[in-house]
Amino acid sequence: MAFQKKRRRGATSLKREPADGLQRWKTVWGPPLRWLGVLLVVAAVGYGVQIGSERLREPGAFPLRYIQTEGEWRNLVKADVHAVAEAYIGQNFFVANLDELNTALATNPWIETVAVRRWWPDTVEISLRERTAFGYWGEREMVDVNGVRFQPTIVRQAGPWPRLVGPDGHEKALIEAYRQTRALLDPLGLKLIRLVQDERRAWWLTFENGLDVRLGREQFAQRLQRLAQIYPRLLAPQIDRIAVVDLRYLNGFAVRWKAERPAPLAG
């Protein structure tokens, strides 16, 4: 008959102590060691990124070699753009300050909008929109189709350009008045080349055939319409002898003749 040794209640087996000790060690040191491992990995990655970033930014690394331009131009040429952008050739692809290049290009009066981008691995891409000129403003400036005045150093697009003169802030009004006049009088052979609104807001018109017309400050459209009505029948037959037509009168007009004066016209 076999006898089994009875274990006393509360006793602990000596064989389980090593396993329990290892478990306690893992419980105490496991989380700190895991965090230490994570920190070491992060530090290694950060160090690698720093070294890589420094190498990427070395002056001789990844040089820019080409300039690519886009846009439809009439008064700009590639030399205008390359003269500014070539200073960036040879600079590091990642370090070159293209915002400065953008700002430098935008100082050209003919450039309305500009966008500069990097194109991997060695190209600067420049997209330009040239300002669309409408005509001259005064003696030295030009005005674009949006009523913005600018002062170009060179005009390559062939004219002739209309000349507008007026108060500051009236650019769009003069452009609209010019278009309105051309639409009404071009079919009659009267081509407007100069439109003036003086300080008193009075209108002066000069046509390609040398005729000057005074419209005054009021009723621009109505007086322009009156000119269209009287020109073919009363003015055109003697246009070479007429210097000025004055339409500031309520129901008529006056004519100032050139040096040789024929019989007066009925107004």
Rank of each mutant, 00 (worst) to 15 (best):
R256M: 08
P160Y: 06
D20N: 05
G138K: 15
W110T: 00
L188V: 06
I89G: 01
H170Q: 15
R256C: 05
E54V: 00
V38H: 00
Q4A: 14
L98V: 03
T12D: 09
N92D: 00
Q197E: 12
A43V: 10
Q180K: 09
Q151P: 02
N251A: 15
Y249L: 07
G37D: 00
V81P: 05
L247D: 03
E125H: 11
V245C: 06
W110R: 01
W73R: 06
L36C: 02
Y231W: 02
R182K: 15
Q68S: 11
Q219G: 10
R201L: 13
E199Y: 07
Q197V: 09
L190E: 10
D168S: 03
A173R: 15
G138A: 13
R248T: 06
R149F: 12
A104Q: 07
N108P: 04
Q91S: 01
A44P: 04
L22C: 08
R200C: 06
R200A: 08
T113D: 04
F62S: 08
D246I: 05
R7G: 10
K6Q: 13
L64R: 02
Q229M: 13
A19I: 06
E86I: 07
P152H: 10
Q238W: 01
G166A: 03
G252L: 02
V143F: 08
L101E: 00
I242Q: 03
P31W: 01
G21M: 13
L184A: 15
R241D: 11
W203M: 07
N102K: 09
I154R: 15
P262W: 04
R118Q: 05
E100H: 04
P31E: 00
T153D: 11
E17H: 14
G21L: 15
P63F: 07
E208C: 01
R55F: 06
Q180G: 11
L22H: 11
V196C: 11
I126R: 11
R261H: 12
R149K: 15
R117C: 09
R261F: 08
G46V: 02
P187S: 14
W29T: 05
A79P: 04
P232I: 10
Y136K: 13
V28F: 01
I126L: 06
P109W: 03
V165E: 10
V148G: 11
I230T: 03
A183D: 13
W110L: 02
L39D: 00
W203E: 04
Q157E: 08
